[in-house]
């Protein structure tokens, strides 16, 4: 019973932040500064996620050459700058990761 109450409350505090801004769209006028700030959300949040998933392993920052996630991300970054194609970028990153794993993997 306790667990279902927990799930219900979790669902509430998960759903409301997801829904409220969308639900209010068109009904509230946001200050221009906020609108400009929100424009940066995808770049800011996704880049922060990239940084942590690529550079942190087992709870530690990993700047070594053995960090294949980071090397794959770097390869993907170069591919993205050159081509701007999503699937090319993903393919380059994954192939690079696979090769590193196959060549130097533990």
């Amino acid at each position: 019973m306790y667990e279902w109450l927990l799930i219900a409350l979790m669902a509430l505090v998960t759903y409301l932040p997801r829904y409220l801004p969308m639900g209010l769209a068109g009904k509230v006028v946001l200050p221009p500064l906020l609108v400009r700030a929100l424009d940066f959300v995808p770049i800011a949040v996704l880049t922060a996620i990239i940084a942590q998933v690529a550079m942190v392993h087992d709870g530690q920052l990993d700047f070594s050459l053995g960090n294949f996630h980071a090397l794959a991300a770097l390869a993907a970054f170069i591919a993205a700058v050159l081509t701007r194609q999503l699937f090319v970028t993903i393919a380059v990153g994954l192939v690079c990761f696979g090769l590193l794993r196959a060549g130097f993997g533990a």
């Binding site: 990239i50 970054f77 993205a80 700058v81 999503l86 990153g93 990761f97």
Partner: peptide
Amino acid sequence: DVAMVVAFVGIVVPA
């Protein structure tokens, strides 16, 4: 999870 990293890179960079 490397798939997520490279996909996000492919999404962010063109932006």
